[in-house]
Amino acid sequence: MWVGYTKGLLKEIGIEPERLKMFNLSSSMAPAFKDAVEEMIEVAKKLGPTKIQKKAA
């Protein structure tokens, strides 16, 4: 519910909502965690960088 809402917030400001995804994992699910990270890396590579350059605090 809240993930969908947050995707909507991103879309409103021109950021691809696919950049956000929630995975339900327990601490014992290392392989699934690795798969999730790889999936999101692929999404980031496909979409490329956003124009937003966050300045270091």
Binding site: L9, E12, I13, G14, I15, T50, K51, I52, Q53
Partner: peptide, 15 residues
């Protein structure tokens, strides 16, 4: 917080 963040990001996106 959400609106202020969205506005900052949207403006930054537009340079």
């Amino acid at each position: 917080q959400i609106l202020a963040s969205q506005l900052r990001l949207a403006f930054e996106e537009e340079g």
